[in-house]
């Protein structure tokens, strides 16, 4: 089938959920499989790096890469794919904004390795052995990819054409994206393939949001029983919906959980966390510092709350190490 456009999938630092979401296309996957030729999909088919290297540059129409970039191998592959693909789509929150893996940017590489291989309660490692990048065995050199100092979004490593947001992107959005690709009418480069307004727009509980929130307390999901009809912010739960791009059709809220922001900010916002912080804090009730602080104590992990999916793409990107 020489006429069918070639499509690829690749995963970097991710949980695999994005791959799963492709399968979630259900019967539509047949439509996709009919329309395109999947030339590269390590999770489902057997491919080697050399197979890709053998392809002609630009011969793939589009590759969807999910996962953040945190090792040298992922970087290398991303670069390779970039060369081979006409269009690269950052697929899912991790590729789009760093995702949950990028919360690692709160720590140094050394801190992480130390914890992983020495301090974690389940580890017994008195010799403090660490994985080595190179290891000679029987005159053969075995190498491991290097973990980088920073978890990066895909577009911090290679040029990205489009973004499909979400953790994971919904089948509906994927299907729309594939159809767009097939149509040949491409949106402007850099477009996030989801509506450019906040989630409240499509939230089923929008009507129940009061005008005046005046937060006196915040609750984490395990601390209270939610009213499953009422706006979560109105119940004192930090919902990222107002600062998060629509498109998921309020999946989490329908599951009676607050939005945690996986779709990222709208195009007008540079830092999703800062924006929701600004919005929520402006609406805190007390005026005195001490009282304000008492309310804020209800948010014990502001980074994990406001930057759950986007630390790598936030303005500061990582914890600053002062000399």
């Amino acid at each position: 089938m020489p006429d069918k456009p070639k499509i690829g999938f690749y995963w970097c630092a991710s949980c695999g959920g994005c791959e799963e979401s492709v399968v979630d296309l259900a019967e539509d996957i047949v439509m996709v499989a009919d329309a395109v030729d999947i030339v590269f999909w390590p999770v489902a088919m057997d491919f080697k790096k050399a197979d890709v290297e053998a392809m002609e540059d630009g011969s793939i129409l589009a590759t969807m890469i999910n996962g953040a970039i945190r090792t040298s191998e992922q970087e290398e592959m991303a670069r390779l794919i970039r060369r081979k693909s006409k269009i690269v789509i950052a697929y899912g929150s991790c590729a789009h904004m760093g995702g949950i893996p990028s919360l690692a940017n709160e720590f140094t590489r050394e801190q992480i390795l130390e914890y992983m291989y020495q301090e974690a309660p389940s580890v017994v490692n008195p010799e403090k052995t660490r994985p080595m990048l190179e290891f000679k065995h029987n005159s053969q050199t075995v190498t491991l990819p290097e973990i980088r100092n920073l978890v990066r979004t895909l577009d911090q490593v290679i040029d990205v054409d489009y973004y499909l947001p979400g953790c994971p992107p919904t089948p509906k959005l994927l299907k729309a994206a594939v159809l767009t690709l097939l149509s040949g009418e491409y949106p402007p480069k850099g477009t996030v393939l989801s509506p450019d307004e906040a989630l409240c727009e499509e939230c089923p509980r929008k009507e129940s949001k009061p005008t005046d929130l005046a937060f006196k307390h915040f609750y984490r999901p395990h601390q209270i029983l939610f009213d499953n009809k009422k706006c979560l912010l109105a119940q004192g739960v930090v919902c990222m919906g107002p600062a998060t791009r629509a498109g998921c059709e309020a999946l989490c809220i329908n599951g009676n959980m607050p939005c945690s922001g996986c779709f990222g900010p709208t195009s007008r916002v540079r830092d999703q966390g800062a924006k929701i912080l600004s919005s929520i804090c402006s609406n805190i009730d007390p005026k005195e510092e001490i009282a304000i602080d008492a309310v804020l104590d209800d948010i014990p992990d502001p980074i994990g709350t406001f930057y759950r999916y986007g630390l790598a793409s936030s303005l500061l990107r990582k914890k600053v190490m002062e000399d």
Partner: peptide, 10 residues
């Protein structure tokens, strides 16, 4: 002031 208090924590 309210934003500032939380931003300081961040």
């Amino acid at each position: 002031l309210r934003r500032f208090r939380l931003l300081q924590r961040v």
